[in-house]
Write a protein that binds this DNA or RNA. Sequence first.
DNA 1: AACGAGTGTTCGTCAAATCGAACGGAACGA
DNA 2: TCGTTCCGTTCGATTTGACGAACACTCGTT
Lengths: 185, 185
Amino acid sequence: MAGDRPPFDRIAAAIRRERDRAGMSLTDLSKRSGLAKSTLSQLESGTGNPSLETLWALGVALGVPFSRLVDPPRPLVRLIRAGEGEVARSGQADYAATLLASSPPGARRDLYRIEAQPGESRRSEPHSPGTVEHLVIGAGRALAGPVDEPVELAPGDYLSYPGDAPHVFTALDRDTSGVIVMEHI
Amino acid sequence: MAGDRPPFDRIAAAIRRERDRAGMSLTDLSKRSGLAKSTLSQLESGTGNPSLETLWALGVALGVPFSRLVDPPRPLVRLIRAGEGEVARSGQADYAATLLASSPPGARRDLYRIEAQPGESRRSEPHSPGTVEHLVIGAGRALAGPVDEPVELAPGDYLSYPGDAPHVFTALDRDTSGVIVMEHI
DNA sequence: AACGAGTGTTCGTCAAATCGAACGGAACGA
DNA sequence: TCGTTCCGTTCGATTTGACGAACACTCGTT
């Protein structure tokens, strides 16, 4: 699952990093956030177990969304050519999904490229609760969405739907392709 | 910016929601998380200001990534047809970006469809720190990425790069299209 | 050197978050 | 009806996070 001990060190580093970036001193940040200088010092040293109120005040003062302080950092430029990447073929239908970007542990969002041919539907059972899928059609046409109310999509169309309920993807044209963003929340 | 007071109520609701979903009683959750039943009761009633350690233990016990407890919930099925949606045209180049999915307040990830014609480059100044862009080409070819090391992309290619540094998008073919996921972290 | 203004750290005090046990109710069987 | 067992809440005791003043330190300036 997710790491099972609070990421004190990571938070410590994040605070210092963001504070440096903003060019603030502990005194500045103290005034701006309303927190005691001593508290900040302790947090940056990895000592301490901040309350939600404290963490939130920090996020506001540093001008970063709260989760930026607790979530892990990430890599940089990455390129996957059209043929490359891990491909998951469907037994059910002529359907290939390539994982392009998967969230690091403490996941968030996976990005898939899909290539499909007309024929059987590709039916997906629910993913973990809270998942939302975003689909953009690049070429061809497809019938996609929740099993009980799928939508016909043409190139350029965008559809989002709950990923934690059964849903389908059916290509209507040859070489139908698109992008799916799977949002794990 | 982001709301400037900690979302106690939202957390309270989230805890109860997740606990219900898992079919656990306060007693169960107490044992599993190592937190006192009383503490949980207070948190679910919106009273209290949990420490990071407490929140983290909750996330682990409930089996949800930490941020799921503090971040706002989200909508359901949404469809934007090829012609629809807010379009931001670039003055610099023949370039149109359509916002498909924007994160609710406390943002995370925006999804754009892009349509571009060859000509001037579309150069983007850095977005907020921590932003990462993911680009998938649907049709045509493009030269994109960080200004100092752009990459030539063909249909199906995927590229991710820091959005908080200057970057470019230049269409090489007519009617080049693709999808950009902008990840705000 | 002696000063002032800045840095980040250390320490005693107080408020408050957490704990654990006791509590009142609801559901079910003997 | 009583006993059992679960539920979630309340309350006093204890731990501990946040505060703020005092601290040691580094720079420039006089």
